[in-house]
Nucleic acid binder design. Structure first.
Lengths: 153, 153
DNA sequence: TTTATGTCTATAATATCTATAGGAAATAAT
DNA sequence: ATTATTTCCTATAGATATTATAGACATAAA
């Protein structure tokens, strides 16, 4: 289960990915259109900016925009910024894996060995999805819903 | 990240899978050997019993044992019992998917469409792993660590 | 200089997870 | 029968994490 925070981030980024590049979007607009608490969204966007996914400009005419083309922003990157490095167990962290208190030996822990498979599966999946995929799938689903045959799938 | 509860469950089940079948194990022993708070483990084992993964007998000579051969107990089943059905988002639940408050339409939500891939990846992985895998990997790792070449990999 | 905008730090509110307590019920041995 | 052993049940306390809000501050354009 991803946190609500991460979900909000993906919604906001999806909206930006689907909007014309070059036009900064306002926090307040994003919050209203995606129904995200505004102050909460602020903190999320700051995290994304510090992580290199967003650019911002302060002052009149300012706002947020993607720092890279949507196809170059993987979901893995976004999720990592908000949830931290993905690891089903603390002992499976890439950087400084920590053995659980109750474990004698990380290297022979069966739980860790099987959960490593889960980590790999999730990582591969998230590395291969981008904001472009997110936006495109949404667009295609909406087109399909309107009864149109969508030839660009 | 799996909860500590689920981790405890896997540790205890792994221990049982690696022990000779037919001999019930005591909560107190499992708790001591895996360093799990005893009362907490009790509640976990009850959940597993109600879920059909464990059998128990009360009274002297009683205890817990697996209700099925380790190879027939998938991690998916265990994780589902403890964490609930796996779904990265509430709208991706198999039974009664619930659209997020802030979403207009579940069917065209891009976030949901990409997270469906993650759900699939995790589900497939967990369905294909069993307690036998967990126990065997631990055994093999321990053998390897002792400097033995392990031919049974 | 005024208005519009993001930034930062702190903290409140809520939810979830982890752990414990204490006794009830069941079973086997004596 | 009685006792020792063991799981079962219900409730609740304690700890931690998540979600949300507040308010003062900094920056930039008109």
């Amino acid at each position: 289960m991803i946190s609500r925070k991460t979900k909000y981030a993906l919604q906001a980024l999806g909206r930006m990915a689907a909007s014309p590049a070059g036009e900064p979007m306002l926090i307040a607009d994003l919050a209203a259109r995606e129904r995200i608490p505004r102050k909460y969204l602020e903190t999320i966007l700051v995290t994304l900016r510090k992580g290199g996914v967003l650019q911002s400009r302060v002052g009149r005419g300012g706002g947020y925009q993607l720092a890279l083309p949507p196809a170059e922003i993987t979901l893995a990157r976004v999720v990592r910024l908000l949830e931290g490095e993905f690891a089903p167990l603390p002992c499976l962290a890439d950087s400084e894996p920590v053995c659980c208190d109750e474990c004698d030996d990380l290297a022979t822990c069966g739980t860790r060995l099987v959960m490593a498979d889960v980590k790999r599966a999730v990582t591969v999946t998230l590395e291969n999805l981008t904001l472009a995929d997110l936006a495109e799938r949404s667009r295609a689903a909406a087109a399909r819903q309107r009864g149109l045959v969508d030839f660009s799938i």
